[in-house]
Structures are given as C-alpha cells and as structure tokens.
C-alpha cells in the first residue's frame, strides 16, 4: 500500500509538471498579444509598450520560460493581469464557492441517483425502470447553460420560489471567512439568516449541476443492484421472510454501493468541470467563472494557476477514489499492473 501510494504521488508530481509545461505552451501558440488585451481598445500604443516591458513580455521566450519555471518551483503563481492580485489569492477566494456548489450538486446527484437506481433495479424492465432511466438520461443530455436559464426564469422570476442568482442576498454580509464555504462559515458564526439564504441560493444551481451527475450514479446503482439481488444471500434473506424493503436496503443496497464509490468520485470531477457553464449562468463567484474570464482575456498566470489547481484536484479525487475502492473491496490488489485503469 505505501509503495503504491508513493508511486501514485510521484506520477501525480509528473502530471503537475506536465500540466505546467502544457499550459505554458498553450499560451505560446496563442498568436495574439495578451498585453494589447489587458490594455483594452482605448489605451494608446505607448502604454501597451510600457506594460510589455513591465510584465517582461519584451524578453525572449526562453528567458520568459526560465522565469516561469523558477517562479512556479517557488510556489509563486504570479499576478493575475485581470484582478491585479496574486493568482493564489484569487484561487483561495474563488475555489471554495465552486467546491460548495459542486458538493451540494453531488449530494443531490447521489440522493436522486441512488433512489432512481434502486427503483430501476427493483422494478426492472417495467415502466418505472424505463421512466427512471429516461429521466436520468435527460438530465445528462440537457445543455446546462440552457436549462439554467429556463429554470431561473420559472423558479425565480415566474414563481418566486427561489432567490435571484448569486451566492447571498444583497442585504446580508458574509460572515467572517473561516473556510470560505458560506454554509460552514455561517454555522460557525451561528448566523442562521445567512445559512438559510445561502442554502436557498444553492438549490437552483446545485440542482442544475446535480442533474448532470445523476445518470452515471443511477446507472451503476441499477446494474450493481441487479447483480446483488441475484446473489444467494439475498435470496436467503428473502426466504427467511424478511420484509422486501429491508432486504433491499439492508442487504442489497449496502453491497451495491461499493462500485458506486468509483462513479461518485468521477462525477465529482465532472461537476467541477460542469461548474464552468453553471457559474456563468448563475452569476456564481467561483473558480469556473474566474477561469473562463481568464481564458477569454488571455490572463496567462490565472490560466496556468487555475487549470493547475483544477487538474490537481481532479487527479487527487481520482487517487482518493482508487484508494477508497481498494479499501472497500479488498479483492483488488493495488500493486497489480493496470488493475485500476
């Protein structure tokens, strides 16, 4: 186990270094000039030239690359052109909002995914099964950017059940920042008004994003439930006269959840990704929007920092999933070549 962990961590470091190089070269193939972009349409040419010197863009590429590497190796992500702050500060500010959204979305995905999956399996090939499957597939087929707009129109504007886009009502002031998660910070501050308001603001974007992960979870739960339900011990439990719902929940579901863990991990990664579009629609001040703006404005340091962070969390989630899976399922050997890929 420790050997395996070490191997994974080393490969993670390689990957991160690779990510840094790839991102730098993405910025190299850009046939355009980030400085002219920073300066905007109105600033005179002299200003652009001055900024070029100030930001070191007048130097040859290998010098820039050298600076870039030495800076990164010190853990310095540099300054964002867009916000004029260290990229790290930006990330610390924006990432919790994204994580909070993705986590709520994941909870919604898991709860509804498991429910649908169980019903699908128990009432296999009936109309319930078909309905559940089509519903979850619709969820994953929906263009989030469009669904977000439509749901906002219905639930916020027409019905007035849910609050406006954003993270918190305009009259409320964020509690002191401890974790950056509004739900947690408001609990720590025992500010119930903020907690309730933040939760209400999370429902709509959380559900839209959650729909996205629903299908994968429902599918795996259904297929592993089917698998487990045909096993001997389940049959025995039934013969012993245990109530059907107890058989399903206590015996079948518990065992069916093991393979689900893998899918949940992958879903979490997918949700971080899906947040890019969701945040754009719901004015969510998170990393997805920060990154999109960075791409659209060629804010190189922010792009590098942001993508590295996303890629790292993605890899980390995968690692944790693999470990968890192995822990839950001792039959899998971690050191076997290709056993997990």
């Amino acid at each position: 186990m420790p050997a395996y962990l070490l191997k994974r961590l080393i490969s993670l470091i390689f990957t991160i270094a690779g990510i840094a190089v790839v991102t730098f070269f993405i910025s190299l193939v850009v046939p355009l000039d980030p400085l002219a972009a920073i300066a905007g349409p109105q600033a005179p040419q002299e200003t652009v030239e001055r900024l070029r010197v100030l930001y070191g863009f007048d130097q040859p590429l290998y010098v820039q690359f050298g600076h870039y590497v030495s800076r990164l190796s010190e853990g310095n992500l540099g300054m964002s052109f867009q916000t004029g702050r260290p990229v790290l500060d930006d990330i610390i500010q924006f990432f919790p909002a994204t994580l909070e959204l993705a986590t709520i979305a994941l909870i919604i995905s898991i709860v509804s995914g498991i429910t649908l999956g169980v019903f699908s399996a128990v009432y296999r090939n009936s109309w319930i099964d078909h309905f559940a499957r089509v519903f979850s597939l619709i969820g994953v087929s929906m263009p989030v950017f469009w669904l977000g707009l439509v749901l906002m129109l219905i639930f916020y504007f027409k019905l007035d059940w849910l609050p406006e886009p954003g993270r918190l009502d305009i009259m409320l002031i964020e509690p002191e920042r401890v974790t950056g998660f509004l739900l947690m910070d408001s609990l720590i501050a025992q500010d119930w008004e903020v907690f309730y308001d933040a939760l209400m603001h999370l429902i709509l974007p959380g559900s839209v994003l959650g729909l996205f992960g629903l299908a994968g979870i429902a599918r795996i739960v259904r297929s592993s439930m089917l698998d487990v339900l045909s096993q001997e011990y389940v049959k025995t439990a039934r013969i012993k006269g245990l109530a059907e719902h107890l058989v399903i929940v206590r015996h079948a579901l518990r065992n069916a959840l093991v393979p689900t863990v893998t899918v949940i991990g992958l879903t979490y990664g997918g949700l971080l990704e899906g947040s890019v579009l969701t945040e754009t629609i719901f004015s969510w001040p998170g990393l997805g929007r920060y990154l999109t703006t960075a791409f659209l404005t060629l804010d190189l340091n922010a792009i590098v920092g942001g993508t590295m962070l996303v890629a790292m969390s993605y890899s980390l989630v995968n690692l944790v999933v693999d470990l968890l899976y192995a822990y839950l399922n001792p039959k899998i050997s971690l050191d076997g070549e290709g056993s997990l890929s």
């Binding site: 193939v29 990704e273 890019v276 990154l291 999109t292 791409f295 996303v310 890629a311 993605y314």
Partner: peptide, 16 residues
C-alpha cells in the same frame, strides 16, 4: 488531468 471542457476552452481560446 484537465477536465475536457476546460481543455477544449483553452485550445479554442488559444486558436482563433
């Protein structure tokens, strides 16, 4: 390691 959409956005933004 890059989420697909983010990688696609990066390349689409880099190329015209």
């Amino acid at each position: 390691a890059f989420p697909k959409l983010i990688l696609a956005i990066a390349f689409a933004a880099a190329l015209e």
